[in-house]
C-alpha cells in the first residue's frame, strides 16, 4: 500500500470517524471497512470502501455519509469506490470496536486466525449482559446479515452475536 500523505491521513481520520449507519456505536474505522483515501488534485478525493457482506444495504448510507463529511471539510469532489479484495473479515474490527460492541449488548466476533494461521480455539460466545459463557445459538441469522441470534442459558436473555466472517 502506498503511504498516505499528511492531508490524506487527515481526511482518512475524518472519513473513518463516520459512525456505522446500522451499528452507530462503531465508527467505520473501527469496523475496518475504510481501505484508503487518495487525493488526486486540488479538491478531488477518492475514498475506498469495502462491504462487510456483498448485499449489505448500509454501504450506500456509508458512502453518502463520507461524502457529506468530506464536503463539509471543504473537499469539492468526493468519489467513494467499492473494493472487494482483500475480502473484509471480522478480524478487521479493532479491539476498541470489539469493546464497544460488547458494551452495546452485542457479543463481538471471535478471532478466526485467518488462512494458514494457527488453528484457532473454538471459544464460547460470552453473554454481553451477565458475562456467562454458557450460551446457545437460536438462529444463524439475525436483525442484520452480519449477526446471529443467541440466548444466554444463565440469565435467559437473548442477544445478538457479530458472527465470524
Amino acid at each position: 500500500m502506498v503511504t498516505e500523505t499528511l492531508l490524506e491521513a487527515e481526511l482518512h481520520r475524518l472519513a473513518g470517524s463516520v459512525p456505522d449507519p446500522e451499528l452507530p456505536v462503531l465508527t467505520l474505522d473501527e469496523l475496518g471497512v475504510l481501505r484508503g483515501v487518495r487525493v488526486h488534485g486540488p479538491d478531488k478525493v477518492t475514498v475506498q470502501l469495502t462491504p462487510t457482506y456483498t448485499g449489505c444495504p448500509a454501504i450506500e448510507a456509508m458512502s453518502a455519509d463520507i461524502e457529506r463529511v468530506l464536503h463539509e471539510h471543504g473537499v469539492a469532489e468526493v468519489s467513494v469506490v467499492t473494493v472487494l479484495a482483500p475480502a473484509w473479515s471480522t478480524d478487521d474490527i479493532s479491539d476498541e470496536g470489539r469493546r464497544k460492541l460488547a458494551e452495546f449488548g452485542i457479543a463481538p466476533p471471535r478471532h478466526s486466525g485467518g488462512p494458514g494461521g494457527p488453528v484457532p480455539l473454538t471459544l464460547s460466545v460470552r453473554c454481553p449482559h451477565c458475562g456467562s459463557t454458557d450460551t446457545e445459538l437460536l438462529s444463524r441469522f439475525s436483525s442484520t446479515a452480519c449477526k446471529a441470534l443467541r440466548r444466554c442459558v444463565d440469565c435467559r436473555e437473548p442477544f445478538d452475536h457479530f458472527k465470524e466472517l
Partner: peptide, 20 residues
C-alpha cells in the same frame, strides 16, 4: 420468525452477489 429472518438474509446475500 427466525426462519423469516434467515431466508431474507440469505436472499439479501444472493442479491448482493447478483448485483456485482
Amino acid at each position: 420468525l427466525e426462519e423469516e429472518v434467515a431466508l431474507a438474509n440469505i436472499a439479501l446475500d444472493l442479491l448482493g452477489q447478483a448485483r456485482m
